[in-house]
Amino acid sequence: MKAKLMMGGVLALASTCLFAAGSESVVAARLKTDFHTKGIAKVERLDQDPVQILCSTPDLDSVPQAQQFALEKQQRAEIKYPADGKYLGDWKKGEILAQDGRGNTWSDTPETPIGGNCYNCHRISPQEISFGTIGPSLYQYGKKKGYTEARQKEAYGRIYNSKAFNLCAPMPRFGHVGALTEAQIKDLVALLLDPESPVNK
């Protein structure tokens, strides 16, 4: 009985991973053959880190939760919080950044400012009706969750690296990959948690 179960486990592993020689999967090797660098989008972007590898599993329920938690913990440990201990920037700058969806594509240049892309997926300020619904609504975020420093720190962490809190979340790791600076993330935290921000009106 035990032997049968173990065999089943091995088979499942073999069918989901599809690894070729070395540590690179068949699909990764294929993609690296079939894609090429264009502008700032280098072919090395296809290299996956452990989070990306695990979260590429079509059926996420098949991935042991312990594995996910371990990676989340590791990602949390890598978050760099502001040295000055302050999390609130300027919500007005945050709003402009949240609107901006540019940057990092092959049609952008290294000089293209990188936007926060926030409205692509979230409802935020009520004045902006062109918002996406991939992520939860953040309207009245502070009003509902409170304006405490603990909340500010949590929001900072989630924008810096959403995967540290929900491993396979759709949201990018803006701070972790260096897409947004510390000051920019603070501005976004202010958009959510400054009582004067339109989000909380």
Partner: peptide, 16 residues
């Protein structure tokens, strides 16, 4: 292979 590519997360924003 197409299915694996559909779910393949990579790049600066981890998108698939």
């Amino acid at each position: 292979l197409g299915k694996q590519i559909f779910f393949y997360r990579a790049g600066p924003y981890d998108f698939s």
